[in-house]
C-alpha cells in the first residue's frame, strides 16, 4: 500500500475518533490547513451558531455529486436543469465495468484498488470509504456537522480541499468521473447532452442519437427514395450538415508539392 494511502487510512482513523488536528501534529505527509478555505489569518473570532441547512439529499454521496455537478432549481425546489443525481451518477458507480471504464479513462490512481477486496461490491465499499472521507472534510470545515448539512459554500470548500489532498483526491475524482459519465454519456438520459448544446436523441430507448437519415428542418425524416430531395434543398427545408461553400484560399500556402490531385499525400 502506498504512503499516500497509509496516510489516508490514518487520517480516516483520526477523523473518526475526532482527532483530525492530531494528524497534522503526527506529521502525516503534508500538513492540512484546518481553517475554512479563504479564512483570514488572525485571532479566533467569536463563534456564532451555524445557520440551519436543509439538505437537498439525505445521503452524503449524492450531496457530493450535486456539489460537483449541481441541479438548478426553481423557487419551490423544482428541478429546472438536471444535475448529476438526476442523470443517474449513483447508478454509474454500480455498473459492473465501471472500474474497467475508469482504467480506460485514466482515472484510477496507483493503489486505489488496494483498498478493495475483489469479492466485495465496488460501489458499497467505495461509498463506505468516501463517506468516511466526507465526514473528515466536513469536520474540517465545521466540526460536528455532516457534509450534507453544510452550507453549499462550505461543501464546495470541502470538495476543493479533497481535490487538493493527494490521499482523498482519487476518490473525489472517481465521483467526478461518474457524474460526467452520467451527464454526458447519455446512460440514463440524454438531458445532459441537450443541456450542453447537443440535439436530443431521436429515440433514446432505442439508442438512436442521430440515425443518419436526412431530415427536414422541422425534424421530419425524409424518404430519400421517394421524395424530391433537390426540391427540399431548393426550398431551404433540409437539415443541412454543410455550409456548402469553399473556404477562402490561403495564398501564402502552396500545398501542391505535398498533396496530389486526388487528395492523397504525395
Amino acid at each position: 500500500m502506498s504512503e499516500e494511502l497509509d496516510r489516508r487510512e490514518l487520517l480516516r482513523l483520526l477523523g473518526a475518533l475526532g482527532f483530525s488536528s492530531a494528524a497534522v501534529q503526527l506529521g502525516c505527509g503534508q500538513p492540512i490547513d484546518l481553517r475554512p478555505a479563504g479564512a483570514p489569518q488572525g485571532p479566533p473570532v467569536t463563534r456564532r451558531p451555524p445557520p440551519e441547512v436543509t439538505p437537498l439529499y439525505d445521503d452524503d454521496l449524492e450531496t457530493l455529486m450535486d456539489v460537483i455537478l449541481p441541479s438548478e432549481r426553481g423557487p419551490s425546489g423544482e428541478v429546472l436543469r438536471v444535475g448529476a443525481v438526476e442523470v443517474g451518477a449513483a447508478q454509474v458507480l454500480k455498473l459492473d465495468n465501471f472500474v474497467r471504464l475508469l482504467r480506460a479513462q485514466g482515472l484510477l490512481q496507483p493503489g486505489v484498488l488496494d483498498l478493495f477486496d475483489e469479492h466485495e461490491s465496488f460501489d458499497v465499499r467505495f461509498r463506505e470509504l468516501l463517506v468516511g472521507d466526507l465526514a473528515i472534510l466536513a469536520a474540517i470545515e465545521r466540526p460536528g456537522e455532516a457534509f450534507r448539512r453544510l452550507p453549499r459554500a462550505l461543501q464546495e470548500a470541502a470538495v476543493e480541499r479533497g481535490l487538493s489532498d493527494p490521499a482523498v483526491a482519487p476518490f473525489v475524482e472517481l465521483v467526478r468521473a461518474a457524474c460526467f459519465l452520467a451527464y454526458l454519456g447519455a446512460l440514463k438520459t440524454d438531458q445532459g447532452l441537450i443541456d450542453v448544446g447537443y440535439p436530443p436523441f431521436e429515440d433514446f430507448a432505442g439508442g438512436v442519437a442521430v440515425s443518419g437519415y436526412p431530415r427536414t428542418l422541422t425534424g421530419r425524416r425524409i424518404d430519400v427514395e421517394n421524395e424530391d430531395v433537390e426540391a427540399l434543398i431548393r426550398a431551404n427545408n433540409w437539415d443541412d450538415y454543410s455550409y456548402n461553400r469553399a473556404p477562402l484560399p490561403t495564398p501564402s500556402d502552396d500545398i501542391s508539392d505535398v498533396l496530389d490531385e486526388q487528395g492523397d499525400l504525395r
Partner: peptide
C-alpha cells in the same frame, strides 16, 4: 446502435492498456 453504454461499446471495441493497469491519472 447509438449507445454509449459500456456493455454495448465492449462489443464494438477493445481498449488495451499498460502493465499493472497503469492507465491512471498522473501516470
Amino acid at each position: 446502435r447509438h449507445s454509449l453504454a459500456p456493455a454495448y461499446l465492449a462489443d464494438l471495441a477493445e481498449v488495451h492498456t499498460d502493465a499493472d493497469g497503469t492507465a491512471q491519472t498522473g501516470v
